[in-house]
């Protein structure tokens, strides 16, 4: 320590003060607004519920055991994961070509195209879901026109089905995926692709051997983002899925409404933990893939 000069020490102290000044407010809000409620929820999830007395202070895994032993809850859990994975895969498949075109276009309308991708995000999820309802319902736009064109004789009911929910979630998540992938692809120089072509790689081979492996780490970010959004979707499954369709977020809210705070806290923790585990798994898998 004695070898550090006075000016150096002064510099260190100044930096320390500036850094803590910069991260302080955010840290405070995160600690108070996120960690606090989380700890509270964690505690609640170990309490017990009584229909008359509501929450009873306890220290029990009862809520978690109930969740994982009841097929009603378990099927909701698996539906949520299945829908989220499906939506994420669809987002990659639909998003990659779009992101590629956006990244590589020389058009002067590129900025307009990007705004076109972002504009759906200006509309709230509930408003958007309402739009889907008018489009997909049995007396909706799509159904009416299919009948008018004579393609079907009976009204087509797409609303209140898994398809409608997937459609709705993909519509919300696709812009996030496209924007993430676009910046990923832009960071991979066009010359890299041309090098592969000139070495004899046809477009699909180029994609598989060069573009995809290089885009993979960035794609993981997009995957994680859209997966988390899908796992936690609320408005879309409620409005487009109907009463028979169940996903985790709506279920948490329903339990709250029933005043069963301990159980809904437990479900919230299951949702959070499973999202976290799958996200970490995705990260590990892509990193290994990228290594070889």
């Amino acid at each position: 320590m004695s070898s550090i000069t006075l000016t150096e020490r002064r510099k260190l102290r100044a930096q320390g003060l500036t850094a803590s000044g910069l991260i302080g407010p955010a840290t405070f809000i995160v600690a108070l607004g996120v960690l606090g409620p989380l700890l509270l929820l964690a505690r609640y999830s170990l309490n017990l519920y009584d229909p008359r007395e509501l929450m009873i202070s306890a220290f029990s895994a009862q809520n978690y055991i109930e969740f994982f032993s009841d097929t009603y809850y378990l099927s909701t859990f698996w539906t949520t994961i299945r829908i989220s994975l499906l939506c994420t895969v669809i987002c990659i498949v639909l998003g990659f070509p779009l992101a590629y075109v956006l990244a590589r276009t020389q058009s002067r309308y590129k900025n307009l195209m990007i705004i076109g991708v972002v504009i759906p995000l200006f509309v709230g999820n509930a408003v958007r879901a309402a739009g889907w309802m008018t489009l997909l319902g049995s007396r909706g736009f799509l159904s009416v026109w299919l009948m008018r064109l004579g393609i079907t004789d009976e009204p087509v009911e797409i609303m209140y089905s898994e398809t409608a929910v997937v459609l709705g979630i993909v519509a919300v998540n696709l812009p996030y995926m496209v924007l993430t992938l676009q910046s990923v692809i832009e960071s991979i120089g066009r010359h890299i692709e041309e090098a592969a072509f000139s070495l004899g790689a046809a477009p699909m081979v180029m994609f598989r051997r060069v573009l995809w492996p290089l885009a993979l780490p960035g794609t993981t970010a997009g995957v994680i983002l859209t997966f988390i959004l899908a796992m936690n979707a609320y408005a879309t499954p409620v409005l487009l899925g109907g009463p028979e369709f169940r996903m985790m977020s709506p279920m948490i809210y329903n339990q709250f409404q029933l005043n069963n705070w301990p159980f809904s806290a437990a479900v919230a923790f299951v949702l959070m933990a499973s999202t976290l585990v799958l996200t970490v798994l995705a990260g590990i898998m892509t990193r290994q893939k990228f290594r070889d």
């Binding site: 010359h191 592969a196 072509f197």
Partner: peptide, 30 residues
């Protein structure tokens, strides 16, 4: 013919090596 069917070797100003491959893998690609 598309680029991948012409037997030309191209060297770029910015090298354009595949960053996720080793030197040997880069050279082996063609």
């Amino acid at each position: 013919l598309p680029p991948w069917k012409r037997n030309t070797g191209l060297v770029f100003q910015n090298y354009a090596l595949f960053p996720h491959m080793t030197v040997a893998q880069n050279v082996a690609f063609g």
